[in-house]
Simulated scan of single mutants.
Amino acid sequence: MAERLVPVISLTGFEQRKVEITAELIEAAEKVGFFTLVDHGISKEEIEAQFSISKAFFDLPAEKKGKTPHDPKTNNGWEYKAQLRPSTGTYDQKESLWLQRNSEWPSDNDVPGFQDTTREFMKKCAEISDQVLTCFARGLGFDENYFKIANDPSQPDCLTQLRLIHYPASEKAVGTWRAGSHTDIGCLTLLFQRDGEDGLEICPGRESHSSFASGDIFTPLPAETGPIVVNIGDMLMAWSDDRLKSNFHRVRAKDDGISPSRYSIAYFNQGRRDFVLQGPLKKYSAITVGEYFAQSVAKNFSRSMTAAV
């Protein structure tokens, strides 16, 4: 597999360095579609605390996790190895809990501190997302608050979600994908990983948001607690007239077939359902975020990629 540089971008002194950071983010998004954020304002201890909450939930027996059932209409709730990837023809080897601000949540009686810890974590993810989206708006020629407003999680039509993910340990995983190759449908994904829990691989190379050509060169991105791996989603690629790249990624089992548990946390900025999406060059017809999601899910499931990380 080829080595590929994923830019590391510091958000320190954001207001004073906004022009510099904007240039770095735009270059990373145009050339790679992935970058890593450091000095972002969430401490390693806070990230570890959220992972502890996540592990406590996944350690529950199925009947307790099932008290927050997955709802196909909203895509919120707990699912277990239920995501079929047409790219592999198999189900992803993971379980996950999808959450929105006002969706059904696990009880603190089952996982003490779950709601307060997770809501605070989501708040900080939103703040970091706002900084990055501000830079992308500036770089694309929009008002700098444009994408912040379009992805405001406090609004009732916002589709933004947090996903807690657990890949159970396996000793027979050689030659399989713990999560098959895919792109993300939304705008911007923040991914948190834990030290030593590797498996994520990335594959830049798309030219348009509607392309299914993924290429065949994947690069491993080692897991580390602290830095945030960020990738562009299909929606933002379309919104930028294909200037910012949404690229393929997957989670690969170890070559010896012995893969330990892996935990990750993804914060998906997915826009507001009623907000109109169109790039500054108007390369594509105007469409609402909700309509874009519905069309993308139908297209992806009928061809080769599913809709989530």
Score class of each variant (00 low, 15 high):
Q155W: 02
E201G: 00
A23L: 08
P112S: 08
E30A: 11
Q278A: 10
S211I: 11
K94D: 06
F301S: 11
P156F: 00
V251K: 02
L188D: 06
N145I: 09
I26M: 14
T225W: 08
T90E: 15
K245F: 02
S10W: 12
R252T: 14
G33T: 02
S210D: 14
D184M: 04
A2K: 06
E127G: 01
T176Q: 15
H70C: 03
I26R: 10
Y80P: 05
A150T: 11
S154Y: 06
Q278L: 04
Q100P: 00
T288A: 02
Y292S: 07
R262A: 07
Q115D: 13
P156G: 05
S304Y: 00
K172M: 09
S296W: 11
I47K: 01
P156A: 07
H166G: 07
G41H: 13
G205H: 12
F275N: 00
H182T: 00
N151S: 08
L99S: 03
A253N: 06
D242G: 05
D71E: 15
L37I: 05
S154C: 03
L190N: 03
R4G: 09
K254P: 03
A238M: 15
L60S: 12
F51G: 02
D216S: 15
N102F: 03
Y263G: 02
V38H: 12
G33F: 00
T288F: 00
F192A: 14
A294P: 04
G290R: 06
S43D: 06
D198E: 03
L5I: 13
N269Y: 00
L159Y: 04
N300W: 02
L25N: 02
P220W: 00
K55P: 00
D157H: 14
R272Q: 11
S54G: 05
D39L: 13
E20P: 03
D116S: 14
Q50V: 12
R243S: 09
Q83C: 05
S43Y: 03
I42K: 07
K124D: 14
L281S: 14
V38L: 13
